[in-house]
Design a protein around this nucleic acid. Sequence first.
DNA 1: GTGAAAGCGCTAACAG
DNA 2: CTGTTAGCGCTTTCAC
Lengths: 314, 314
Amino acid sequence: MTQDNVDKVNAIIEKYGYKRNILASNLALNKKFRFAVFLPKYENIEYWKSQIIGIEKAAVEFGKFGVVLDYFFYDFNAISFKKEIKKVLDFECDGLLFAPIFYEESVQFLNEYQKKNIPVVMIDSNISSNQEHAYVGQDAFQSGYLAGRLSSFAVKNERQILIFKITREIESTSVYKQRIDGFYSFFKDNEGLTNFKFSEVTIKDSGIDQLNLEMFSGINSVFVPNSRAYIVARFLEQNHIKGVRIIGYDLLKENIEYLNKGIIDFLINQRPEEQGYLGINYLYKKMVLQEIVENTHYIPLEIILKENYFPVKK
Amino acid sequence: MTQDNVDKVNAIIEKYGYKRNILASNLALNKKFRFAVFLPKYENIEYWKSQIIGIEKAAVEFGKFGVVLDYFFYDFNAISFKKEIKKVLDFECDGLLFAPIFYEESVQFLNEYQKKNIPVVMIDSNISSNQEHAYVGQDAFQSGYLAGRLSSFAVKNERQILIFKITREIESTSVYKQRIDGFYSFFKDNEGLTNFKFSEVTIKDSGIDQLNLEMFSGINSVFVPNSRAYIVARFLEQNHIKGVRIIGYDLLKENIEYLNKGIIDFLINQRPEEQGYLGINYLYKKMVLQEIVENTHYIPLEIILKENYFPVKK
DNA sequence: GTGAAAGCGCTAACAG
DNA sequence: CTGTTAGCGCTTTCAC
């Protein structure tokens, strides 16, 4: 049969509602689907550990359909990242799951990777310039917008809000900037809320001793646009400062501790486990089941209080 | 081979990490897996429509692995329910998805059904007396507890809370009672919150004209323990009563309308679509993949504000 | 280029 | 009761 006729037959076949039996097809193919997983080293980083847990869960579930994973981990610095990039580029596989922590380097990498014509799904943060790639994660801007609402709750009088940035030595993605943008946008969109004043503070992750009481004088609410809200909570607790509303991200053990103590009020959960799972699920659906899959999957902005936090049962 | 030897071989096989190829197995079996879906009629009831959407999604996804669904719908009355029970009992299938709306009748039905030795998964509400059955849905008590927290937010002064029950003609499950229990429990557990006073009102679904201004005199917060918060919201809007916090359930179109207007403050989402999907998913995993599946799957208590509501893209 | 045949791993039917 | 075999629906190989 010529390609022409193949097409014709396929057309007719589809017309009469034929569905290829994916079980038989994959049985006959008798092949493994190799997916590369390219992430920051997760040891001691709870958030990335959760991502891996979700990924592993997917690996077990889809393993019976031939899915095999290979991991590539990079340290939190651009040099390690670049080194690992080479390995990933050389690696033969059917799909890539990727967390683009370093923006510039990731853009470059994706451009390079594109030549291989292998589907890519990004988790955690998105690189929107490459629309053809899939994304599983939150809408960072909107999550900041929501945080704005959460800090504005049921408050009539003057409020002083502090945006507290605690950054890594080597700063990476722009996620936390998008969150802050969203945060301010909320107050811009709600003109009635003129009684809110803002200030910002930035410290390095290593310089936690930089915290001082002055920073918090007159402050009613603190917004921590990454997972380190517990650092602020701990400081306030140690200094017996009460009645400050704290809003942060991610269900780290330490954050949960202060949530349960009532010191942190709100945490926005990014569902890292679900992200990892859905990332692999995307590749599975696309490559193994050969389905058409939605390119962008936004994880809902989940608000966690003491009263709706439940440890993940395992 | 005797059964004895089969067992021995299987033991050895398992010892060396043999995994039966589920694709080949199901291909050879060449059988359909029939699941019965036994639910209230969903026409005009958004919540149940969503459940069906999730169920249908699962049906498409698992259809390629041989899953076929048969539907049995009952009206919202015990007579129709009992009539449909007969059909379900007579129906040959490999699994049952079931919403136990009428408590007494459901207990009886489940006892009867148990004889058939077919796995059952319940959605929406649970019948805990039958521990051997699976459940996908929320923890109703805890959701009320959370609602308690939501009504207590950042409030220092005296608060008058109204629990507003709008019930169906024929009342069904005890879900809303569990929610109210949980609601009160929150205030019991938080002794500091002595400035809260409570009252309750009950009206029938059909008697919406029973609402009157007196009910709301002095009220600061209203808790509607089912999906009909929009009825209260509409009444307050029509009567230009502002500044009352409303907490309700479910993302019905009408609820969303008042959420976006800022009249309803919080909605607790039960994720009906996910419930339906996961219900079928449970049966699929158990029967088709022959996996061991967790018997209870609690849907997270999702707090929805105007700022984190996004219409489901389809 | 084309069509027949082997075989993926498993189950069920069928002889022995 | 046991062991052999056909065949599930598809892909790939191998003769022609």
